[in-house]
Design a protein around this nucleic acid. Structure first.
Lengths: 154, 154
DNA sequence: TTCCTTGCAAAGGCTTTGCACACCG
DNA sequence: CGGTGTGCAAAGCCTTTGCAAGGAA
């Protein structure tokens, strides 16, 4: 396959990063990266496939998964569990997001990262662990489901 | 099936809570609850099945999943995503745990809940959302994988 | 007696993997 | 060229679901 399609600046930045790590750059990887960067918030493997397919058919779901795995391990994207059955991914450049996922109704509220306070610093100091603060999912009950009272909304 | 097996005090407390909500109490539900309470930290559906099967064969994986769903919606257990392919559950009484999951090597570090600071309060005040603080998973890079440098450990 | 729960087995959905070919560097 | 990456298709998991029988209240 030729490398003739358009790439954004952001995409090229990550491409370069991958190249420097010794990974080969293929049109598929570029397109998957673009799909991730173009998504406003989070995107699933299936959605990435669909997005890339608007450009070309030269893409396979297996490649999407393999690339996701690569990008995840390289820290270019983060994994977001939005309830167990909805695993999505997002590039770190989309900024810090905290997802509040209601375990009863499934609603997802985007919270300001300020609620995290000193969490990142604390974890680094005490455990030497570098938290990916860009995307965090917290589970609980939303306002409505708390008010619905004790009965099961199911 | 008869109801002749032993139950712990903690199990009975939850059983009563379920009963008051109008749910029927079956030996299967009691045993699943006990397995959850007996596990030191988190436990998967498969592990629950195995635990219950040490007592009786009168249990099916489908029942485990259906009960997990019920307990989750009732807020008796919380779901913990430890990396996408490892979804585990734990009862809230096991206390607050923060899991630091390394996205590169997969290691899981148990952190003190103190690192969360005022997070719970912040989220409640600003969004009216009641976070399940008992079990939170944060992704990032562990100390070793940070030192391993930039190359992929894979 | 009512109808919620379970067991069983099949279906479903998502993800991974083996293998041969393609192609990046 | 050498070795990595991809497509294809099959396999693998884990989880869900339909239906009839069982049993809690």
């Amino acid at each position: 396959m030729t490398r003739a399609h358009h790439t954004t600046t952001a995409t090229r930045t990550y491409i370069e990063r991958l190249r420097q790590k010794g990974h080969r750059i293929t049109p598929q990887r570029e397109m998957i990266l673009e799909a991730l960067l173009a998504s406003s918030a989070h995107i699933t493997a299936e959605e990435i496939l669909a997005a890339v397919q608007t450009h070309t058919q030269a893409i396979n779901i297996a490649t999407v998964y393999r690339t996701i795995d690569l990008l995840f391990k390289e820290g270019i994207i983060t994994r977001v569990d939005l309830g167990g059955e909805r695993i999505a991914y997002t590039t770190v450049r989309h900024g810090t997001h905290v997802h509040l996922v209601c375990r009863r109704c499934g609603r997802v509220i985007e919270a300001d990262h300020a609620v995290l306070g000193m969490l990142g610093v604390q974890v680094r100091q005490r455990y030497g662990f570098a938290v990916d603060l860009e995307h965090i999912a917290l589970f609980g009950l939303c306002r409505d489901c708390q008010q619905t009272g004790e009965q099961l909304a199911d």
